[in-house]
């Protein structure tokens, strides 16, 4: 089973999904993220799905679960880069991902987290002020 790598950039955890996920990998990713958020004290999670060509209800539910999970650790989650065909399909499927923030691309996702007061660390805050 492939595990999806989780990168830490300042106070933000970045998950970039590059493979066709099995259900087990999805569950593993949820567990890994929960552990990583609590271990690092990260305040934001960005899930980049620009390389993902299908999101079914199982994967869609993962986004919602990760968002609720991270909220328990006072972290915000942004899903970025959803392709048009995937978005249209999710709507038709009946999945609207309520409570999950979205952004067009990685850059804007990061911006949203910063706008929410989630820094990429102390250095960033100091420079920005």
């Amino acid at each position: 089973m492939e595990r999806v790598p989780i990168l830490k950039i300042g106070g933000i955890l970045l998950v970039s999904i590059q493979v066709d996920l099995h259900d087990q990998s999805v569950l593993a990713l949820q567990e890994d993220l929960a552990e990583k958020i609590s271990a690092t004290g990260a305040h934001g999670v960005v899930i980049d799905i620009s390389a993902v060509d299908i999101v079914d209800s199982f994967i869609g539910r993962m986004f919602a679960t990760i968002a609720s999970l991270s909220r328990l650790f006072d972290a915000d989650t942004v899903v970025v880069g959803m392709r048009p065909a995937v978005a249209i399909t999710l709507v038709e499927l009946g999945l609207t991902l309520d409570g999950v923030r979205t952004a067009l691309d990685l850059e804007r996702g990061m911006e949203i987290l910063r706008g929410l007061g989630v820094g990429t660390g102390a250095t960033f805050d100091a420079r920005d002020a």
Binding site: A87, L97, T102
Partner: peptide
């Protein structure tokens, strides 16, 4: 309506 919702999923 669906388009507006889909655009939202994409972050727009």
């Amino acid at each position: 309506l669906k388009t507006v919702v889909a655009a939202r999923l994409m972050g727009a």
